[in-house]
């Protein structure tokens, strides 16, 4: 008795084949990054240029989002604390929420949309217009010049942006607390720093480094492997955002579990 192969099996096997090939390609891409990053020539100027581009490009949106999150989160938390007469705990609550989770996550998600998509589109358009091939035939390593520099820049800049988001969100929160509870700036920030620990800051920096690397490498991978002309450029930009966000949430969950295990060990 033989099992008869029908068209559904073929479709499934092709999808599985495509999935595992994609996974293997992505793994090879990440592996190549770690091989190339140590090898000279080091593209310091291009890394600095990318750091400036990434930081500068994201600053207005991150400022606005961080500030509004600080105000809104404070406003929404107040009624619950007020029920127990504990509104004086607002700075502590906000600082823990912002430093531990909201700051890194919001920064990463905004950067995935803003920076990840632009990296995907830029490298994708370079790919379809043969600019990457032009580098190769001129004996220039395009992977090093395009992928390594951009991934390093996002890895360095997301933690910096995260700290900035934390500060702006806390300032937003302070304005709200100051208006309602008449708390001074020094009192607010004393409470903020009393409630957070070194582990909170350290874990959020590590998390941001991971998020930054993810945004950079995914954007580059999607752009570098784009095809089908201009349509492919749009797809690369879109896929870079979707994949980065998906991975950021998974990484957030994993890092949170590890940090909690350390915290309560």
């Amino acid at each position: 008795m033989f099992y008869k192969i029908d068209s559904r099996d073929t479709v499934l096997s092709k999808k599985l084949d495509k999935f595992f090939r994609g996974l293997a390609n992505a793994f090879q891409f990440v592996k190549r990054f770690f091989q190339e990053v140590w090898r000279p020539p080091y593209e310091f100027r291009e890394v600095l240029r990318q750091c400036y581009e990434i930081g500068y490009r994201s600053l207005p949106l991150i400022s606005l989002t961080g500030f509004i999150i600080g105000i809104v989160f404070t406003n929404q938390s107040r009624p619950s604390l007020a029920e127990f007469g504990a509104t004086s705990w607002l700075p502590a609550l906000i600082s823990i929420a912002v430093v531990r989770a909201l700051g890194p996550l919001v920064t990463a998600l905004i950067s995935a949309g803003k920076v990840g998509s632009s990296i995907g589109a830029e490298i994708g358009s370079m790919k379809v217009t043969e600019q990457i091939d032009a580098m190769e035939v001129s004996a220039i390593n395009p992977f090093k010049y395009l992928v390594v520099t951009r991934t390093l820049a996002t890895t360095f800049m997301i933690p910096v942006l995260m700290m900035y988001t934390d500060f702006v969100a806390l300032m937003g929160s302070f304005i709200n607390v100051n208006q309602n509870e008449l708390v001074s700036l020094s009192t607010f920030f004393i409470q903020v720093f009393e409630s957070i620990s070194f582990l909170d800051i350290f874990s959020s920096v590590i998390k941001s480094l991971i998020f930054g690397f993810t945004i950079g490498i995914v954007g580059c991978y999607k752009g570098y492997n784009s095809s089908k002309g201009t349509e492919g450029v749009g797809q690369a930009a879109n896929a870079a955002v979707v994949m980065s966000m998906f991975l950021i949430f998974i990484e957030e969950l994993l890092v949170m579990q590890i940090v909690n295990a350390i915290r309560y060990a």
Binding site: M126, T129, E130, Q131, D133, A134, E136, V137, S138, A139
Partner: peptide, 14 residues
Amino acid sequence: RLRIGFSFQASALY
């Protein structure tokens, strides 16, 4: 490659 020049169809300027 340094001894060969390649002119692309769409110019491929950066």
